[in-house]
Design a protein around this nucleic acid. Structure first.
Lengths: 396, 396
DNA sequence: TTGGTTAGTTCAATTAATTTACTAATTCAG
DNA sequence: CTGAATTAGTAAATTAATTGAACTAACCAA
């Protein structure tokens, strides 16, 4: 997918070693049970190099050996796996209506899940709550004794690409908060790396990174909740999460789908969020801003008016997906967010529009798989944990 | 702009050397007249490494030394420049209505420009013509004796991201052509690398690569001509041209701006190209498909109907730019393509819409510069030449 | 002229990958 | 059961890149 790779930054021997260690870990992550010989042939490294890199990772508890892998003729190789027992990755997702925490092992297993139903208030109070929770959860037996690689935090809004500052989160009325600093000031005691990212970016990265089997060459995650956002992972050899110069990459909720349409809280008219989003659907159904959408829709699911509202919103989601596809042409799309809980009444029209309106070239090419995550409660937090791992690998 | 860099591919010592050589060249390209000491401090390489890399590049004719650069106190450093005299980069742009060729030096100076007004017919005939032209132009004194680094070819349609195949070019009715093979079979005698890319991708890369001064951190090029396409360059340390899994990244002409709108030749309704593109404007003005748009509009520029058509098309372009900005959030946008020749009657409404409809976050952040290229005749060909250089650097 | 400062080179030292030769474990044929 | 063939992995010497320290070079100012 990527071409014209023209490095502007230099590296030393240590960088090279880091690069190769990261490549070995990536390979084992993608192909659990791979042998040293498998890794050597796929990465183009020599047997000797792979041997020494693997030995280092075994010593540090990143990898562990498994059974012998018979390969027809010849000596069988020794299976290698990510060692699930020595480390822990923490991810925290500051949602519009709750705080969600996850502790993951290196393979992405959830060791602890925690859902805190209190909606965020001020940044200080919320970070205090988060610090307390994390300080407590660290003691739990599921993670006790593990080396903590770090904490990734996600927020429902764009994050500055250069410094860990949440620029704007309209749905919780925060702006320009250096969240990681606030968190440290709130008394968090946790070693390792600290990361802050947008919720959709983190979710996209997690879906890519912890993907079972060979991951897609690129991936877009669409987060459909109170607002609409998206995150992109692109690049085969060097997967990246581009964020845009202002951290706004993927803020598709404010692409214009209906010039001259309804007014949006962003000041424009006809934004996607005026057609499909938690607040647009609540408004269209005449519900209160804080109404439990899933419950209300569940109660009235038989009413044709409700069906019609969901179908229209779903169609708008389909247009959004199609436009995003024409713009980014990802290998996979993943749909998540709280709106997915409204079920097929919403998703079916979206998928139908997407399928029906592909142009000739898209239709002729291979089918683009679309994954629906009905329950994405921990998707973003898990993605933040994945980012911690990707970062920690470079620091080993 | 880019985070969560998690390399999946490995490297050897030679890769490291290539990386550093590329970084040195990039630095001199960005900052002509830089000294070895400048490069060392910016790249974090040691003086010794920079010294030896630079010596190698001097020997091979990639760099040359200039005057002494006094730096206040201390010994002045020796200015370094890309050597403009030893190499040549070839770029060819297969347009909808003509063939355009450029020979560039390493700094992007045009040594030869050639415009062939014949519209493409079959791939074979067109490549025959191109091969003949190139074989002739190679003899010209402007480039005689220079080492040829290679040829980049651009086409008006999506190119497969893995193999150099033009997948579909509706405006010249080609599909699934291995253009570089056809070109070689047509008798081209030219050494060096061969590249094929989409016209907008190449233009975007060229605008980035040959940018005077520090290039923007990311850049989108919008090509507004017979159809509408775009190309993206992203990434600060490792600039990339993402192409999408099917080579369709940036095919924004078929994003839906008006659900249920006019039928587009792609089979959908309400595509951007039904509102703003050479053929949409010709249709709206009641002109023939092959009419000279610039001339016709020039003749009737006083007619209010013409003004209105251009204003409406311009506004659609503005929506497209805004949506693209919300999706990709590039540091710079560049507008090119033959429609730009229609002048302010088209571009002014586009820019006005873009400015007026930025949402709060965009407005608050720094102004996004938009560059208009009124005459983009050689922009794509020049971009293809830039891609040749980026590739050749890795092969030195 | 001398001391201070920055630029650039030289060369031994370091470090990571490689090469070559080796050992190890398995299958298969006889 | 034995030995040849095959593949996996290790060990040690080698190669090739960056590095560090010591050096020379060029300039300024007092």
């Amino acid at each position: 997918m990527v071409s014209a790779f023209s490095p502007q930054s230099a590296g030393d021997l240590n960088f090279l070693k880091t690069l190769n260690r990261s490549a070995v870990i990536s390979h084992v992550r993608r192909y659990p049970g791979a042998t040293r010989a498998d890794i050597a042939s796929r990465t183009q490294l020599t047997k000797a190099t792979v041997g020494s890199v693997v030995q280092g990772l075994l010593d540090q508890g990143w990898l562990c050996e498994g059974e012998l892998q018979p390969r027809g003729e010849g000596r069988p190789g020794r299976a290698l796996y990510l060692d699930d027992t020595h480390h822990v990755l923490w991810g925290a997702d500051i949602g519009v209506k709750s705080l969600r925490l996850v502790a993951c092992s290196l393979t992405g297993q959830h060791l602890i899940e925690h859902h805190d139903a209190e909606a965020p208030t001020t940044p200080e109070a919320t970070m205090k709550r988060l610090a307390e929770l994390l300080n407590q959860l660290q003691q739990r037996p599921e993670v006790a004794g593990r080396e903590i690689l770090g904490l990734g935090v996600t927020a429902p809004g764009p994050v500055s690409p250069l410094i860990p500052v949440l620029r704007l989160a309209p749905n919780i009325r925060w702006s320009d908060v250096a969240l990681l600093d606030v968190l440290d000031e709130a008394g968090l005691t946790m070693p390792g790396v600290r990361l802050l990212d947008n919720e959709a970016n983190a979710a996209a990265f997690g879906e890519f990174y912890f993907h079972a089997g060979t991951p897609p060459e690129s991936l877009v995650y669409i987060s459909a909740g109170t607002g609409i956002g998206s995150g992109l992972v692109t690049g085969d050899e060097y997967p990246l999460v581009p964020r845009g110069v202002q951290g706004l990459l993927g803020e598709i909720g404010h692409t214009v789908l209906q010039p001259g349409g309804l007014y949006c809280h962003c000041g424009n008219r006809g934004c996607a969020e005026t057609l499909v989003s938690g607040w647009a659907i609540r408004a269209a159904l005449g519900l209160d801003e804080n109404a439990d959408l899933e419950k209300e829709v569940g109660l009235k699911s038989h009413e044709p008016g409700v069906q019609h509202v969901l179908a229209r919103a779903g169609e708008a989601l389909g247009v959004l997906m199609l436009n995003l596809h024409h713009t980014l042409n990802p290998a996979t799309m993943v749909l998540g967010g709280s709106l997915l809980r409204l079920g097929e009444a919403l998703t079916q029209p979206a998928l139908a529009y997407f399928e029906a309106h592909q142009n000739d070239l898209l239709r002729e090419s291979q089918h683009i798989p679309i994954k629906l995550i009905e329950d994405s409660t921990y998707t973003a937090a898990r993605g933040a944990a994945a980012q911690v791992m990707a970062k920690a690998v470079l620091d080993v």
